[in-house]
Design a protein around this nucleic acid. Structure first.
Lengths: 84, 84, 84, 84
DNA sequence: TCAGATAAAATCGCGC
DNA sequence: GCGCGATTTTATCTGA
């Protein structure tokens, strides 16, 4: 593939990939819009969207956060092991 | 249990929104992974992923905007002919 | 500027901007290389570069983190204020 | 005070590295801000910042690589002529 | 060369 | 409507 698309088969592959990508991108876009709808509804119900985003982000980060803190413990210990 | 700040209905609504969001986020994540798989396969087939991304981006863009941007690019480049 | 670079003055401005940008980019690049040198030296001294990065990142985040936690406190309170 | 894990020399080295890093990071940050100023001024003069960025990026790139990439882009685009 | 981490850039949504 | 801040996406870099 360094120089050119040599044959029909390669061309078809490229088309297949692009179409696949664009299909998934479209699906993704739909989901993004659904998410937007939820946020809009929540907002119109009186909730603060920014706050909801924050909560969701926290819940997502939580497992990572535990791991992170464990890592940091190790980190500081290692940090002061230093040179041989 | 702490003092009830809000009513149960409000709490339930909030929970409903958050769960809805998290479900859609999960779906979105799956799609992102599928996209990654396509790009990986394209790469392993010999295609240049970066270029494919560029193509997809261009196809998504409004043609008028795209043309305008390309025109500006040429114009600026011309203006810089021979600089440095 | 919507359609073309009309005169010499505009062209000179563009050149000036580009050159300014490239100068600063070059300076930035030097600094990035100095940073790399420090990390390399630290590594050759026996420190774990990843750990040092972590420490630096933590120190940088620290003030933000306090603020973040305060914000979260408010967040959860507000979150359950909900609808009127 | 906790038990001494490492010697003072090692601690001092670590501190020296971290301070060096933070100094360079601060310098880098200044430069980034200067760059932002230039882009802002260019924008207020009527230039298209995105296009300027693209120009700078292209000028930075290895000419052979750039040409190769542009060639691939054209090739792929040709392959997709008439699709969708 | 590859994946995983880091940094840069573009996009989106808000408030002024 | 416009900048500004936050999110997401893209590109670069490093280590395995």
């Amino acid at each position: 593939m360094t120089k050119e698309i040599v044959n029909q088969e390669t061309r078809d592959q490229l088309i297949k990939y692009i179409e696949g990508i664009e299909n998934y991108e479209a699906e993704k876009q739909e989901i993004v819009e659904r998410l937007k709808e939820i946020y809009d509804e929540a907002k119109s119900t009186g909730f603060d969207v920014k706050v909801i985003r924050k909560i969701v982000a926290e819940r997502k980060k939580d497992p990572a956060k535990l791991e992170e803190e464990q890592y940091l413990l190790e980190t500081y210990k290692d940090a002061l092991k230093g040179v041989k």
